[in-house]
């Protein structure tokens, strides 16, 4: 694989439409059955307009951009801050930008800045990731 350059980026719609069914599927697959995600009356009682998607669901679909770009065995770190709620009906777009290409032994490491937004341009997640490369810096 050719080493990327700082500023290289990938963008993808990582979730065309968040649905209540998807949120429930994710709750079932992960065991996170918080009422905020699966009990709409309880979520509304707390002041929310509906159930919301798990932050981990947003992170997981953002992660799919990383694995599609870099493969599934190169990540050494992946972190996210959940900045805004994701609701049923939202479309999520993720962008990953190369911020550094560093020497590591063996090979090199590529640092990435991640941003995921909804259909209104609201940033719902920011994050970072690091990818390990076999190729050394300078080749």
């Amino acid at each position: 694989m050719i080493l990327p350059r700082i500023g290289d980026q990938r963008r993808a719609v990582v979730c065309p439409e968040v649905t209540r069914t998807q949120i429930v599927q994710f709750a079932g697959a992960t065991g996170d059955l918080s009422p905020l995600h699966v009990d709409e009356p309880a979520a509304m009682e707390l002041g929310y307009p509906s159930v919301m998607a798990h932050g981990m669901l947003t992170m997981a679909v953002t992660g799919s951009l990383l694995t599609e770009w870099w493969g599934d065995d190169r990540l050494t770190a992946f972190g996210a801050r959940f900045l805004a709620s994701v609701w049923p009906g939202d479309e999520l777009t993720a962008v990953a930008v190369v911020t550094a290409v560093r020497e590591a032994r063996p090979g090199s490491c590529v640092d990435l800045q991640l941003t995921t937004t909804n259909q209104s341009g609201v940033v719902v997640l920011t994050g970072t990731a690091t990818v390990r490369m076999l190729e050394p810096v300078g080749e």
Binding site: P35, L36, L46, M56, G79, A80, R81, F82
Partner: peptide, 27 residues
């Protein structure tokens, strides 16, 4: 009933997941 770190708070407040970080050492 929800248990573990994401269990509901007894005072009715919300418990929210603000950040998540992973370090990968072996697949």
């Amino acid at each position: 009933r929800p248990t573990g770190p994401l269990a509901a708070l007894p005072d009715g407040g919300s418990l929210l997941h603000a950040e998540q970080h992973f370090e990968y050492h072996a697949p």
